[in-house]
């Protein structure tokens, strides 16, 4: 029982570590690493499901009858390459965020955003007041 479900438990633990990093850490690079851990835990889950006791790698050889399930292998193989491509897009976004805000810490970015919004509101307010003054004149 312990050995039979050990892989699944490790998958859950890894997945939760990844999730914790994504929720609690503010640094965007760290969040991406957390996402990678989360993603890999799903890979481990699929590949563990494909395993058969006494089976070999799914490449046909004479004299072997027991092969592990090839379908999860196919799904995960393509998922890994797609994963790195999408991670690259995320990293590109982080580079642009760094250029625009000067930081990749989530809280500092939100702070700058809220300041920007406040000043924007103030500007609109001021300009409307000026307009009103003009009309009154």
């Amino acid at each position: 029982m312990i050995m039979g479900l050990f892989n699944d438990w490790v998958v859950v633990v890894l997945m939760m570590i990844g999730l914790y990093i994504i929720i609690a850490h503010g640094n965007l690079i760290k969040k991406i690493v957390g996402l990678t851990i989360f993603q890999t835990s799903v890979f481990i889950f699929y590949i563990s499901m494909a395993k058969i006791d006494g089976g070999t790698a799914p490449i046909l050889v004479d004299g072997v009858t027991q092969y592990s399930n090839p379908l999860p292998h196919v799904l995960i193989l393509t998922a890994i390459v797609v994963g790195i491509a999408t991670t690259a897009v995320a990293l590109a976004l982080i580079v642009r965020i760094k250029e625009a805000y000067g930081t990749i810490e989530e809280e500092e970015i939100q702070e700058q955003d809220s300041q920007h919004k406040d000043s924007h509101k103030l500007n609109i307010h001021n300009s409307s007041e000026i307009n009103r003054d003009k009309k009154e004149c």
Partner: peptide
Amino acid sequence: FVVMDAVDVAFT
């Protein structure tokens, strides 16, 4: 992944 017989996946 090699231990789990998924050699293609391990390669990737």
